[in-house]
Simulated assay, not measured.
Amino acid sequence: MVQYIEYGDIFGIEGVQNYAHGCNCAGAMGKGIAVAFKEKYPRMYVEYKRRCKTGEFRPGDIYPYKDAAGYVFNLGTQVSWTTRAELPAVEQSLRKMMTFAVENGVYRIALPKIGAGLGRLNWEEVKLVIDQVAADYPDVDLYVVENYKVEAGL
């Protein structure tokens, strides 16, 4: 099931401890929600950067990072921060993430609108891909926050 949330904070969704975000494969997390991931999971960032440098993380790949609460799925959606995201890479990384989730007992994942912000893809096209992939994995719930917004007073 996919639940689209118009405004919110992926890190503030009740009952969700697993997160995903689209990444470039050049080792940079300097803009957008990637900065929050880099700050929240500094060890993950170091390993992500290493994987990019050695060519172990490419478009269509995933890098699942396990912390005490759950997983962070880094989804390889674009070559670098200067290039557009690639719809086939979005689909491939989502499928790999969902397969990993089923195999590892992960049933709830929150993510931003991947590929359509800094990746510059058409959001409606990306949503179709998300819906198609999610339909093949009915045991995993995706919570997609379309616009980042922290609630006042939090």
Rank of each mutant, 00 (worst) to 15 (best):
Gln78Ile: 02
Ser80Lys: 04
Tyr48Ile: 13
Ser80Trp: 12
Tyr63Gly: 14
Lys66Asn: 09
Glu91Tyr: 08
Ala116Gly: 09
Leu118His: 08
Met97Glu: 07
Gly115Gln: 05
Glu103Cys: 03
Lys53Tyr: 03
Val106Ser: 02
Gly70Cys: 10
Lys96Val: 03
Gly76Met: 04
Lys96Phe: 00
Arg51Cys: 14
Ile114Lys: 00
Gly60Met: 07
Gly117Ile: 06
Ala110His: 03
Arg58Gln: 15
Ala68His: 09
Lys53Gly: 10
Ala116Asn: 05
Val46Ser: 13
Arg50Gly: 09
Leu94Ser: 08
Gly60Ser: 10
Val72Lys: 04
Ala101His: 10
Glu56Met: 11
Pro59Leu: 04
Gly55Lys: 07
Ala69Val: 10
Tyr63Ala: 13
Arg51Pro: 10
Glu56Thr: 05
Ala89Phe: 00
Val106Thr: 04
Met98Phe: 12
Val72Glu: 06
Thr82Phe: 10
Val46Pro: 01
Pro64Tyr: 02
Thr82His: 11
Leu75Val: 09
Tyr63Met: 15
Ala116Val: 08
Thr54Gly: 02
Ser80Ile: 06
Glu47Pro: 04
Val46Lys: 15
Leu94Asn: 08
Thr54Met: 08
Tyr48Gln: 09
Val72Gly: 07
Arg84Gly: 08
Glu91Phe: 08
Tyr48Val: 13
Gly60Leu: 06
Gln78Gly: 12
Pro64Ile: 05
Ser80Gly: 09
Ile109Tyr: 09
Glu91Leu: 01
Val90Ala: 04
Glu91Ser: 07
Gly55Tyr: 02
Ala116Lys: 03
Arg58Met: 14
Pro59Cys: 07
Tyr65Trp: 15
Ala101Asp: 04
Lys53Arg: 14
Pro112Val: 08
Arg51Ala: 11
Gln78Tyr: 01
Ile62Thr: 12
Tyr71Gly: 06
Val106His: 08
Pro59Arg: 07
Ala85Arg: 01
Tyr71Val: 04
